[in-house]
Design a protein around this nucleic acid. Structure first.
Lengths: 335, 335
DNA sequence: GGAGTACTTTGATTCGATTCAACGAGGCTG
DNA sequence: CAGCCTCGTTGAATCGAATCAAAGTACTCC
């Protein structure tokens, strides 16, 4: 490159050796004040900018950690990311945010990228798939924490008890007298979704009821709309009286279709969402939702990862599980 | 590190020189098929993973572009990011997403980071501030495109005509007979916000009206709630009959407070938002909003940047300006 | 004046992939 | 069979910063 200024140029300009420049940059207390000032002046004057690639090459690791999420457009994940970022920034690291879109191919791509970049560590909400490359990554020694997904012994994880979440939702609906309850969400190959359904079924069974399922192929707005349309098309007496949705985006999609078809929420159809994103409370009919501690989840995940990085030897893997809360709003209010 | 496998190890294993390994990696057609197979086998067997830092050091640039946004939790920006990502991925680059939170300090931090990483280029929605480091970055030769902000000649930019957006909103409200109109948004030091207000004022003036202003200190949900509360506290006859909000998050915040205080939208207060994020249509009262082509904005910005990178010499800076649309929904419906 | 101590500075070496001039082997031609 | 290509392969040099053993300097104290 034309104007690339290196430590050597700075050293020449300041009349010192390049080692001294390096010391000014990394251990300024070792350098005599006068020399330090001279070097800093030279840096300023030449517009020297450290080359991170060279540092990394020497150090063997980069100073960034990767966060791979399922859907960057879902506020749940941006809130989570915000939590991660605050912890990561505190540790002087930076965050590389990757959006897999629940697509294993894209997930693979980002994981390779992070490995090639010799990331300090990886936080990931893994996509649904048969065999995961995660095991291989751990074996190669890169710290990795599962987010929003529990795991066993071999690695750290941070999750929310989705079984309890499902139970909370269904218990609430049952207490309101609902009998025809449908779960809307998917794909069921996604662990979180499957667990929420499992919790829901357990709670229903206890009351001698069954939960029917409408499986979606994604946890997005549009998927909720599609299912909402299908629900609206059902004859009123076969229609469920309540739906429990895999997440708030789906719930909002369903809600929107109900409004469009003049099906009154909660009178004709009660809706429970999941995540309690900020928009849930601002919805057409404020949404009852199972709240997850989104930022805490992110913050804790990052802290576990950083601990594993900092004290690799003494580190013991931990599985942190948060408890969800049910936030009751108008979408399930007693009419 | 213990188990780091380098090209040299691969070369030894395959019984070739390291130059050949490099050729297999970068120009496989130059290598005889038998040799290539042998090298690939060695790579596989040793679990070799390219060291991106070393590549970058040699190349002088990284293969990633930075996107610095004002607020990652605003769906407008994640939609924009999705557009950017699709273009960037097509070009074989990767995206580093940075959230400045409209804080100049954090913006500076991320910009330094991107420069140290020798990013291929930068896309940025700059924070509001007196003197920007952007000019300096350009002078040092790093391609940079302004997003959601117009500029003059010296650099590329992609924006939406916020003056027109403001006019659309106010013309619509005036056509509905509103006379006491308030703009809720801020900070006014942010160019986009100021332009929207300017457009609004121009339209109002044409009709012989004035727009009052309630300035917020951020473009977030909470800011809208605060102002909503203040509006709700006004005596009904002094209260505006319509508000035009700087973005949808603020509008949703205002809307939520109105609902809480039993002030009927649109009858008692009409609301117009800005951006038309997905949640606007799903709101308590579906929101009339000025739509920006969010993904297109991102995609176009990335394409301009990539063009500047690829054909640095022939590249001519361009200022792309999109036109916004007004999407009318219930929050301003004629009652 | 010399020994001892504390503080600074030096510069050769290292990290791992890429590049490119140079070399060798083999084939083809006149 | 010499001369000339082509095609594959080689390996030393390179990128920029960090490291650390060793050398240098300044100062104190007896």
């Amino acid at each position: 490159m034309s104007g690339e200024v290196s430590v050597i140029d700075v050293a020449k300009k300041a009349g010192v050796s390049l080692g001294t420049v390096s010391n000014v940059l990394n251990r300024p207390e070792r350098v005599a004040p006068a020399t330090r000032a001279r070097v800093l002046a030279a840096i300023e004057e030449l517009g020297f900018i450290r080359n991170e690639a060279a540092r990394q090459l020497r150090a063997g690791r980069s100073r960034s950690i990767g966060l791979v999420v399922l859907d960057i457009r879902n506020p749940f994940f941006t809130d989570l990311a915000a939590g991660v970022e605050s912890s990561v920034a505190d540790a002087g690291l930076s965050l590389v945010l990757c959006n897999s879109g629940d697509d294993p191919t894209r997930e693979d791509h980002y994981l390779s990228l992070l490995q090639e970049q010799r990331a300090t560590g990886i936080l990931i909400t893994p996509a649904a798939r048969a065999t995961s490359p995660i095991e291989g990554i751990r074996r190669r020694g890169m710290p990795l924490v599962l987010v929003d997904r529990s795991s066993h012994r071999r690695q750290c994880s941070v999750s929310v008890d989705d079984l309890v979440g499902g139970e909370l939702a269904i218990d609430h609906l049952i207490s309101l007298g609902h009998k025809r309850i449908t779960f809307v969400g998917g794909p069921l190959s996604t662990k979180q979704v499957a667990d929420r359904l499992r919790g829901a079924r357990a709670a229903a069974e206890r009351a001698g009821l069954r939960v029917t399922v409408m499986e979606t192929d994604g946890q997005v707005f549009g998927a909720g709309r599609t299912m909402g349309e299908r629900i609206a098309a059902m004859p009123a007496r076969r229609r469920p009286t309540a739906v429990f949705c895999g997440n708030d985006l789906i719930a909002l999609g369903v809600l929107q279709e109900m409004t469009r078809h003049h099906i009154v929420v909660p009178d004709d159809l009660a809706i429970v969402g999941y995540d309690d994103i900020d928009f849930a409370g601002a919805a057409a009919v404020p949404l009852t939702s199972v709240r997850q501690p989104r930022e805490d989840l992110g913050r804790t995940a990052a802290e576990l990862l950083i601990e594993e990085v900092v004290s690799a030897d003494s580190h013991r893997h931990r599985q942190v599980v948060f408890e969800p809360d049910l936030i009751v709003r108008a979408s399930t209010a007693q009419s």
